[in-house]
Design a protein around this nucleic acid. Structure first.
Lengths: 226, 226
DNA sequence: CGTTTAATTTGAACATGTTCAAGTCAGAGC
DNA sequence: GCTCTGACTTGAACATGTTCAAATTAAACG
């Protein structure tokens, strides 16, 4: 149960070996097909040792997430540094998500469901995964802020979190996508990012003022409860 | 693995006992805390017998769903028979969902995650759960069709399925809702149903024509892949 | 009623996530 | 270098979902 941080060099080695073995095996065989015994075996430690550093198999997935998040950040850094158009930034960012996750496509389904479980410590709506979620939301904040789009403050306040939700939805679609090269997901991304930016532009129309205000208030109140 | 239909009177008794025990225990203790051994015990059969009628523990949940769906249908029948206003019909229907599910609130989390798993036979996007999903979509079709709202055919074509998705989202919010009497969920329902109906009215605005067409095309293409 | 066939039931056996008490080891303090 | 403390490791044990071959029972048939 206790989340032990390694205090000695030997401990660090063990923890790293366990994590490395887990990441490899999740990728090779998927989450469910990877047994804790297999992880311990490959890491060269005993079964019990894994539980000294990771309270559960699910917690190993959290590290898996962090890993892909790092890859994602590295993949889009050049784009975010150079491009100013919001649609292009957003499209590139979301495309990079699915491209980065592509090697884990077969695994993603079981992982997603683990994460969707509100009882799981990995649930992104407040749990052990919150720090990582905040990082992703911060990324979308940068996607928006770094663009030359002028967005009203009431919208831009809620936009990063909404885009994070949007990313989750795309990932869920991607999980089901069996098309070659996952082309359908890429099409949906192109279409939706474009649509989102268009709608952001339309949000200033007087007729939509009322609905916009209510929608934002709704999102804010929903988020407040997490 | 084989889904056996009872062929004898004794078989029917056993199947009913197992299902009844499972529904009771899921409600009493939740999904995960209910063991197959406990179900078999309460049903008065052996462990192996349960697997003769239900291929897995998850399949028992499917019956649980069907059960709540029947309750829901019964609860809203009077409203749908009398009321013509779309906003009222929709609000009443969704309210009835959460009210019907209220006794299972503590259980709902673990069940939801089981269902969200794309690898699960219970996943509503095409699997053993598809017939039930179709029934729910048909219900929303009736909610819309039975109202006096005039909705363009391109929208009404996709609306029932979209409302089903909306119901899923509300349920996910409800799962997290810790407010007394689940009042927050009811507030969100009131606000969202109202907003949905308003937006349906705005969809005819010329400025929104383009986005509307694209959005509907998108939904249709996404749904086509299930 | 006796026989035969198929449905039903059984419980042992297996795989796997998790726990835990006991053992082993590294390093700090002297 | 010795000792002691706490970090680390271990593997047996447990709980539980699932499988399966064998046993038992119901029903159909003559």
């Amino acid at each position: 149960m206790a989340i032990a941080t390694p205090k000695t060099r030997r401990g660090e080695t063990s923890r790293a070996a366990i994590l490395g073995a887990a990441l490899d095996l999740f990728q090779e065989r998927g989450y469910e097909a990877t047994t804790m015994r297999a992880i311990a075996d490959r890491a060269g430690v005993s079964l019990g040792s894994s539980y000294h550093y990771f309270p559960s198999k699910e917690h190993l997935v959290l590290e898996f997430y962090r890993h892909t998040h790092e890859l994602h950040l590295a993949a889009i850094a050049p784009l975010l540094g150079r491009e100013k158009d919001l649609a292009v930034r957003l499209r590139g960012t979301i495309r990079a998500v699915v491209v980065t996750c592509e090697p884990f496509h077969a695994v993603a389904g079981s992982i997603f469901s683990t994460v969707a479980n509100p009882a799981s410590p990995l649930n992104p709506f407040g749990g052990a995964a919150k720090p990582l979620r905040d990082e992703v939301v911060a990324l979308y904040d940068e996607v928006v802020r770094g663009s030359d789009a002028r967005i009203a403050s009431d919208i831009s306040e809620m936009l990063p979190l909404t885009l994070w939700l949007y990313q989750m939805a795309i990932l869920y679609f991607w999980i089901f996508d069996r098309s070659p090269g996952r082309l359908r997901t890429l099409e949906v991304i192109d279409e939706t990012t474009d649509l989102i930016v268009k709608l952001l532009g339309l949000a200033n129309l007087p007729v939509l003022r009322g609905s916009r205000k209510r929608l934002l208030g709704l999102i804010k109140s929903v988020v407040a409860s997490t």
